[in-house]
């Protein structure tokens, strides 16, 4: 079908395509500023969950660490910023406390997690995540228990909030991609490919995985703080493992490598979910079904698939 296009032009097109797609993605995130309202609300939500998804993509796709406990980071970040504001701390400080708390939790659980390998890591992230959920749920005095925690008076305009969230997302993607080019990032990828070999070269793989986990925790905690400010409410139910699975869906849907896929997956998921929720309240059915379909049929994710289709068949993955 593309036989009539000169080879040279096709080559140019393929080289420029990734950049075009990335630009297009950011435009998609920016566009709702024009319409405001609920669309903007959703777009902000997508950017914040995108930040968390990008962090998970870094951890899973590049670090090879499967985590089903990301909701705990989100929740810790959300409660941290909520409680900081309640205690009268300035917002800026709250936004520092949130990632710090999540990172501390990542450090403590990571010390135990990385004593095991493979699927056990996944089971334990899930177990620890549910621990945070049950604490949040039961510890009424601090978290407000089932009633949640209301935030008021942050006075951020939706536009500002959206730009902030999107800025964070862009920074995170750019920063993590740079990190992945560094010796640390390459070593982390090497550990995913062959941990024994990397250890035999003298690299203490344990700490490399631990720091990747802590960094991911901090970023996700920040995303959680953003979600709390955005929704002006923190509910313990957002700490349930369904949220962790949702993040997993976003990452797998978009593609777990390269980080852009995760951001795209978050955007896609958020809008599809908003659309679907007008028919049904069975959120678990939706997330679960989507997870099953993604695992069975969209193994590498939509972003690389899109890149290949637009590039005319073969493409660079």
């Amino acid at each position: 079908m593309m036989a009539w296009i000169p080879q040279k032009a096709l080559k140019e097109w393929r080289r420029g395509l990734p950049w075009l797609m990335r630009g297009g993605l950011w435009l998609l995130f920016l566009a709702p500023l024009l319409v405001q309202g609920y669309t903007l609300y959703l777009a902000t939500e997508a950017a914040l969950f995108g930040l968390a998804a990008v962090a998970l993509s870094f951890l899973l796709g590049h670090g090879g660490i499967p985590s089903l406990g990301q909701a705990a980071f989100l929740g810790l970040g959300a409660y941290a910023v909520g409680l900081s504001l309640k205690a009268g701390l300035p917002l800026a400080l709250g936004l520092l406390v949130a990632p710090a708390v999540a990172a501390l939790y990542a450090l403590l659980t990571g010390l135990l997690l990385f004593r095991t390998h493979g699927i056990f890591v996944l089971m334990l992230t899930l177990a620890f995540g549910q621990m945070v959920y049950s604490v949040a749920h039961k510890w009424n005095a601090v978290t407000g228990g089932d009633d949640g925690l209301s935030l008021q008076g942050t006075g951020l305009s939706p536009t500002l909030l959206h730009l902030g969230a999107l800025g964070l997302l862009v920074l995170a993607v750019a920063g993590l991609r740079l990190l992945l080019q560094s010796p640390y990032g390459k070593t982390l990828e090497a550990i995913r490919q062959n941990e024994e070999k990397v250890r035999s070269l003298g690299v203490p793989a344990f700490y490399y995985k631990l720091w990747a986990y802590v960094l991911t925790g901090a970023l996700t905690g920040l995303a959680g703080a953003g979600v709390a400010l955005h929704r002006t409410f923190v509910s313990p139910h957002d700490l349930f493992w369904l949220t962790s699975a949702t993040l997993m869906v976003m990452v797998l849907l978009g593609g777990s490598r390269g980080l852009f896929g995760a951001a795209f997956g978050a955007l896609l998921y958020t809008f599809v979910q908003a659309w679907v929720s007008s028919f049904t309240e069975l959120w678990g059915l939706f997330v679960g079904g989507l997870l099953i379909l993604t695992v069975l049929f969209a193994r590498e994710g939509l972003w690389p698939l899109l890149e290949r289709k637009l590039g005319g068949g073969r493409g660079s993955a």
Partner: peptide, 22 residues
């Protein structure tokens, strides 16, 4: 494919639980 299998069972769990709720 360990990870995919686990994710599939999670998804299945949500589906069953939500159908029961329905």
């Amino acid at each position: 494919r360990e990870l995919e299998q686990v994710l599939l069972t999670i998804g299945l769990g949500f589906v069953i639980a939500d159908l029961l709720r329905g």
